[in-house]
Design a protein around this nucleic acid. Structure first.
Length: 347
DNA sequence: AATAAAGCCAACCGCGCAACC
DNA sequence: AGGTTGCGCGGTTGGCTTTAT
């Protein structure tokens, strides 16, 4: 039995707001303030769902909102925070005065993710894509009978969404389980192919820690970045294993008792991070590494905690195993790129 | 100029959480 | 203690705009 709808959707207006509706809502809120949103439509004379009113207010009408484009400093901050805490848009937005979670989310999905892709950085893990592919190759190469923890499963929530791909399978054997080899189009030759001269070479040389603060949002944050500038769509990234392979249970289960501590840690982290050293992403805006305002993430510390928290909130450990996810991805790749399956591919 | 494709963003949806009764 | 309600969140969709062919 699901929760009843907040309003009778058949009798309320939906879609874009008119100037008249905006004026009514604005007048109501400025006069009476924000109270119970479910009562607002009636009091304001609007034929809208209260939820819709709240959204319109918080995302558009609020007087403290900025409506101009994001600054390079804001970009840096978003990228760094995303690296640390993943797609926790509301938390990120709180650090950007005048921006809403929806603003930040849209800006990420339409601009920043592409920007990272074009620079050879995986926007989910914030690692160089070549490194991701390398790790993926190592994992896929596991022998058939390797031990996989039978408990502490990770969600295998896979997606059918097509995303830009830079992995090229090249095989004549659709079975997985024996030795693997797949061709990787490295960042370098991707950019060569694309004649992309904006790439900052140091990105490829900077290797993040194996314990780097990758977001676990990769399981759910799989919608399609439309950046197939020089390659077929990339399948959504695999959930990455813990840096320490002995930590499977910790990786999958996290520790939800620390949630509050993690939240509390955010403020301190943000305050202390402004003077720390720079990561790849902090150099994105100006390209010369001179971060002006960007906070930076201390890998493996706060970020790891948030990462665990994210797992706690978004993964469903009972569903499937990490390896299942890999196998799913393998199948996805094969289905998506049959043209690459006819060459020399060994298992 | 017409059409298709891609980009963009406002709005919606459903869920989890917490407050309240 | 358990049910109800409202809020906030992240993910997704729909449709308008812009760009490419």
């Amino acid at each position: 039995m699901g929760r009843p709808p907040c309003c009778d959707k058949s009798n309320v207006k939906r879609g874009l707001w008119t100037a008249e509706e905006d004026a009514k809502l604005l007048a109501h809120v400025s006069k009476l303030g924000i109270g119970n949103w479910t009562l607002v439509p009636k009091k304001a004379g609007l034929n809208r769902c209260g939820k819709s009113c709240r959204l319109r207010w918080t995302n558009y009408l609020r007087p403290d909102l900025k409506h101009d484009t994001f600054t390079p400093q804001e970009e840096d901050l978003i990228i760094n925070l995303h690296q640390a805490i993943g797609s926790r848009w509301s938390l990120i937005a709180k650090q950007l005065p005048g921006r809403t979670d929806n603003d930040v989310k849209n800006y990420w999905n339409t601009k920043l993710r592409k920007k990272l892709y074009t620079m050879g950085i995986d926007p989910v893990t914030h690692k160089p894509i070549s490194q991701i592919l390398s790790e993926f190759g190592n994992i896929s190469g596991l022998p058939n009978n390797h031990h996989i923890p039978s408990t502490n499963m990770i969600s295998s929530t896979t997606t059918t969404t097509t995303t830009p791909a830079r992995i090229f399978y090249n095989n004549n054997n659709n079975n997985i389980g024996t030795s693997h080899q797949f061709q990787v189009m490295t960042n370098q030759n991707l950019f060569n192919n694309n004649n992309n001269n904006n790439v900052q070479p140091h990105f490829f040389n900077e290797v993040t820690s194996p314990c780097s603060s990758s977001s676990s949002s990769h399981v759910t944050d799989l919608s399609s970045p439309q950046v197939a500038l020089f390659a077929p769509p990339l399948p959504p990234p695999l959930p990455l294993p813990p840096c320490n392979s002995n930590n499977w249970s910790e990786f999958f289960l996290g520790d939800n008792t620390e949630d509050q501590a993690k939240e509390n840690d955010l403020e301190g982290f943000l305050l202390s991070s402004s003077s720390s050293s720079h990561t790849n992403s902090s150099k994105l805006s100006n390209g010369n590494g001179s971060d002006q305002n960007g906070s930076n993430i201390q890998e493996g510390q706060f970020a790891q905690m948030i990462n665990n928290d994210h797992h706690h909130h978004h993964l469903q450990p009972e569903n499937s195993s990490f390896v299942d996810a890999i196998l799913d991805r393998d199948s996805e790749l094969r289905a998506a790129f049959p043209e690459f399956l006819d060459g020399s591919f060994e298992y």
